[in-house]
Design a protein around this nucleic acid. Sequence first.
DNA 1: TCACTTGTAAATGGATACATTTTTTCGTTA
DNA 2: TAACGAAAAAATGTATCCATTTACAAGTGA
Lengths: 220, 220
Amino acid sequence: MTQESAVASHRIADRLRAQILGGELAPGERIRQEELADEFGASRIPVREALRILVTDGLVTMVSNQGAWVSSLTMEECAEQYSIRERIEPLLLRQSMPALTADTFAQLDELLTQMESVAEVGEFIALDRRFHELTYSGCPTGTLADIITQLWNTTQHYRRVYSELVRGTGSGLDMTHLEHRLLLDAIRRNDPDDAERILAGHIRRTRLELEKHPEVFATT
Amino acid sequence: MTQESAVASHRIADRLRAQILGGELAPGERIRQEELADEFGASRIPVREALRILVTDGLVTMVSNQGAWVSSLTMEECAEQYSIRERIEPLLLRQSMPALTADTFAQLDELLTQMESVAEVGEFIALDRRFHELTYSGCPTGTLADIITQLWNTTQHYRRVYSELVRGTGSGLDMTHLEHRLLLDAIRRNDPDDAERILAGHIRRTRLELEKHPEVFATT
DNA sequence: TCACTTGTAAATGGATACATTTTTTCGTTA
DNA sequence: TAACGAAAAAATGTATCCATTTACAAGTGA
């Protein structure tokens, strides 16, 4: 379990991060320091520190003398982030694979089975994320993993909105399941080249899918 | 020219960043808030903000209740950053190429000529950086460019130390010049595939070269 | 009616003072 | 002598108060 930090700025940052990733705070939303300070029973100093921590995460955007907002992405920016992931997640997967065990494979399999039958949108994207993160779990944390976590975080809102949009239409999700199964198979066979290729394709197709729905994104 | 920010925290961050990138502050060096505050005639509040800004840049590492240090990399971490660059800089170059003009080509050529005859180490790595940045200048700034700037920044110190180490031995630098010429040629010919391949190879060879000199890095 | 100005409210930036945590020092003891 | 521990010193974390900047709105003029 995650221990709550004794430092107020960290506590506030953790809580805010969870709110943003959980969808309680939408991209573009204004964040006022005093409001937050009252909410947490703290002064504005730790709130400002917390905001800067979230800037590091890419989740908050600050402008001098103007304030802070939950970061938002245009469709082009979101696509850019997917293009980056397309190039570097296969690298992380390759480095992770040697350390994965049969036990991990079983967990991955179980996650896929759950995903194939889940109805709720939030649940689906959570399982999807846990699946991919588990495939990377053979890697010690480092810059590569940090960057990828950031990219997942900053695009999470748009994944959720997209999923809600296409829910029930059956579009795209079938392919996702197929790709996941292929990916797990390549990992099990310990074929890093194949795994890299499938993962890159998976991310690429997701990006193209997102680009079919500009209405998900901010207009500016 | 770069306008000095009216906000103290930004001024301090800019100055500190320049000191770190310029080699005045070495990786691992402790940063005391009060010291900096005195140095800038400010209180510790803007100093703390500045430190958090540099954490975002990856140039400073902070630990709760313990303090801040100039970030340092082990050889493995530095190699990891080069591996990431190897995958994503070719992407940035590809996106940049269509916007480059004959004028840019001429500037790139001029930079290479200067590099081939420069004697001073600091001058060399500065020209090298300007050359590559100019090849990327066709791209609007975005997440990809930001990440790459960060990776260049966090590894800059080790490039400098390495360059000083091999100065005069003639090892490796010849290859660097050849690769740069090949790269510029591919860019001129507007051959993105070739340019991507050469650039990836260039970064990869630099990484391998660095890995031949573990003494450049922190031992922990 | 529209553009511009100005004044006021509100929000962010920063200084000082204090609280808390960590580190260091120094004395004690086995 | 080495190890343990307590007290002092130093550094970071936070609250409060004030300064400065920005945003909003009402008012004035053409």
